[in-house]
Design a protein around this nucleic acid. Structure first.
Length: 381
DNA sequence: TCTGGGGTCCTAGGACCC
DNA sequence: TCTGGGGTCCTAGGACCC
């Protein structure tokens, strides 16, 4: 989906169309703008980041992940709207349902992305007919764009290619509203000139290390010595990188997967002191456990692994977790377990973030206890 | 002007088992 | 005598993604 959160907000506030708009920060009572007016970025203070920005805001250098304080320097007059995730989830459901009505093989990939396998559809439509497979695929993609627009009023960009890796890159080539067809033979001309960071799975760290090896583009990565890549990035990641640069990707479109963990975390407006702010921390901690328990309940899961996450004022992050005898979704049990995790963490600095996670999920009643025997161990067996 | 919140996957060492 | 080779689970950290 194109600039998804921002585009949903523009449906609500069409008068903002064509203006730089930034979604981010949290909703506070003091944020409320005068009646009929919008809050702008100027004078923003706080720890929020940009979640999404309209293309007009991006033209001013404001991108996802950027601190709002910095964004305010670049675009002080941009409108700032708080994120409304409930609304985005509603539109997410709508657009995904619209796609599923056209093609059943859909893989969820976050709130605003999907992978679609149109192989069977296109093959059966063109079998024995004088139809070109890729022309037919383009028609299907156009139908999907049309269906999404009718269901939501929103635009999306689609990449039609032989695999997920290439489709992800291709979908980004002509945003917004793009429909990009890319065949294997197009890789040298259309993929290789792109920076390595365009590959889904090469992030800031790997990108920087590749740069020190003199590798900037995907083409340079494709021509690199695989042994060199393995030497610097390990057997698995190095080999994967090389394959990715050649556009090779065998992953199937998965129409269903179970969640692995459910978590809640919060960054404080001001860093909290582990001793002086003990009571406030404890309240927030308990609140997080209650919210996670609620999430588990709503989604129908219980979990055995309870985790704690803590970020210090210097942004260093530590995690601790422990595994329970029996899976739970009870807030008090989660709180107690996470409390024991907290005891194993150094508390000698101010804290900026606290988080609680529950993993090793199962459905209640159907829980598979730890592998192997669940009997009490016996001597002389 | 420091850097959100929700996730996944991978690695690596140690415990423990056969 | 002091030591093999497989396996799984647990924990911590980190990269990466939307």
């Amino acid at each position: 989906m194109d600039a998804f959160y921002a585009s949903v907000e523009l449906l609500r506030y069409p008068e903002l169309r064509g203006k730089p708009v930034v979604i981010g920060g949290r909703r506070r009572a003091t944020d409320a703008p005068p009646e009929g007016a919008f809050r702008t970025l100027c004078n923003y203070t706080g720890r929020g980041v940009v979640t999404t920005s309209t293309y007009e805001a991006r033209a001013l250098g404001v991108f996802s992940g950027m601190g709002l304080m910095k964004a305010a320097q670049l675009a002080p007059d941009a409108v700032l709207l708080p994120a409304d995730f409930d609304e985005y989830r509603r539109y997410s459901r709508r657009f995904k349902d619209a796609v599923r009505a056209v093609v059943p093989e859909v893989e969820d990939h976050g709130i605003d992305e999907i992978y679609i396998d149109v192989t069977d559809l296109v093959m059966s439509d063109t079998a024995g007919k004088a139809l070109n497979l890729w022309d037919r695929a383009r028609d299907v993609a156009a139908m999907i764009q049309q269906a999404v627009h009718e269901a939501t009023g929103l635009s999306c960009s689609i990449g039609v290619t032989p695999n997920k890796l290439l489709s992800k890159i291709a979908s980004d080539l002509q945003k917004p509203g793009g429909l990009t067809i890319l065949r294997e033979t197009d890789i040298p001309t259309r993929i290789w000139p792109l920076p390595v960071r365009k590959i889904n799975g090469i992030g800031p760290k790997a990108g920087a290390r590749l740069e020190t090896l003199g590798i900037r583009t995907i083409g340079e990565l494709a021509r690199a010595d695989p042994a060199l890549l393995v030497e610097h990035f390990g057997r698995s990641y190095g080999a994967w990188m090389f394959d990715a640069a050649h556009g090779r990707d065998e992953r199937a479109v998965m129409t269903y997967s179970e969640p692995k963990s459910i978590s809640r975390e919060t960054t404080f407006e001001d860093d909290l002191h582990p001793v002086r702010d003990r009571e406030q921390l404890s309240r927030i901690f308990t609140g997080l456990c209650v919210r996670v328990a609620g999430d588990l309940e709503r989604k129908g899961y219980v979990g055995r692994k309870i985790g704690l996450k803590l970020r210090y004022d210097n942004f260093k992050t530590v995690t601790r977790d422990c595994t329970l005898e029996a899976p739970t979704r009870d807030a008090k049990t989660i709180r107690r377990a996470a409390g024991t995790c907290l005891k194993r963490v150094p508390l000698d600095r101010r804290i900026r973030l606290l988080g609680v996670r529950v993993g090793a999920l199962s459905r209640p009643g159907a829980e598979t206890p730890r592998q192997g025997s669940s009997r009490a161990p016996m001597l002389f067996e």
